[in-house]
């Protein structure tokens, strides 16, 4: 198309129009952020005050974080469940991916087919038996139960298997000749080589776990074990008409993840584009 020659006038125009469009697109987030800084009486003044007249930042956020529904607890729960699920899921997925791609053994294809089949099952279709199972084996209303539910994602296996298959078999063979067993090869040769892929999957898994609403809704009962999504919902119904507080809660729940995403955006976007993955 057009050659490289300084600023292209048409491109500048499109960029400006698209920029305006993106601001419009992000307006709900901007409104959320601005509202969380306001005093309650100014939330619905019209025309909308995009810069608050009266700032109430500290009071709003203090109420959200240390008030009746203390977000500090929920944050800690979300971080704990998110990090543990991510680590466990990465390990289990990477091991399975390595096993399915780098070890030739009987039944490998058959077992992989089983894994493939589970990929077609919508998570919500199995909630009831999972619930009954959890009630009976004592995993109901525990973080461990929540972590286990998120840790056996077939998706991670698919994604990482793709990358392991790209590794040359010679790496494995020469390590074997040197006397290394599969655990050694996996841990000190194969895994470091696919580190970028694992990182991508880890960020995605963390985002999905952080945002997960259904599992905590069904498998957690105790208030002190709640993770953020349910906490935001409870906080909202409790706070009723205090919209500035509700928005402060929403910002608290969304913002850290947007930051994680912006830092890791390259690998997240590449990973999504590469694997065409969907949470």
């Amino acid at each position: 198309m057009e050659m490289r020659e300084g600023l292209d006038f048409r491109k500048v125009i499109v960029t400006i129009v698209m920029f305006a469009g993106s601001i419009l697109f992000l307006l709900p987030f901007i409104w959320m952020l601005v509202t969380s800084f306001k005093v309650e009486s100014e939330v619905f003044t019209y025309p909308i005050q995009w810069i608050p007249k009266q700032w109430n930042v500290i009071e709003n956020y203090k109420e959200v974080w240390f008030g009746q529904y203390p977000f500090t607890t929920y944050y800690w729960n979300s971080i704990k469940v998110g990090v543990t699920t991510t680590l466990l899921s990465c390990l289990v997925s990477a091991m399975a991916a390595y096993g399915f791609s780098k070890i030739k053994f009987k039944a490998s294809n058959f077992l992989f087919l089983i894994v493939l089949i589970t990929y077609m099952i919508p998570g919500q279709a199995i909630l009831i038996p999972q619930f009954i199972l959890y009630r009976n084996i004592g995993l109901f209303d525990s973080h461990l139960g929540l972590i286990l539910l998120g840790s056996f994602s077939v998706l991670g296996t698919f994604m990482l298997r793709q990358f392991f298959m790209g590794l040359h078999q010679e790496f494995i063979e020469s390590a074997k000749i040197d006397g290394a067993g599969h655990p050694r090869i996996f841990w000190s040769i194969a895994l470091p080589l696919v580190k970028p892929a694992v990182a991508t999957y880890a960020i995605l898994r963390f985002i999905w776990t952080w945002n997960d609403y259904t599992n905590p809704l069904i498998f957690i009962r105790s208030d002190q074990l709640l993770t953020l999504p349910i906490a935001v919902q409870k906080f909202t119904s409790m706070s009723g008409e205090f919209y500035s507080l509700i928005m402060a809660a929403a910002v608290s729940a969304i913002l850290p993840l947007i930051i994680v995403f912006i830092i890791g955006q390259k690998s997240v976007i590449e990973g999504i584009a590469l694997g065409g993955v969907k949470g």
Binding site: P229, V232, I246, A249, A250, L257, V268
Partner: peptide, 11 residues
Amino acid sequence: VSMTVAVAVVW
């Protein structure tokens, strides 16, 4: 990437 619950509350 934003938490659907929080986004839904905003909307």
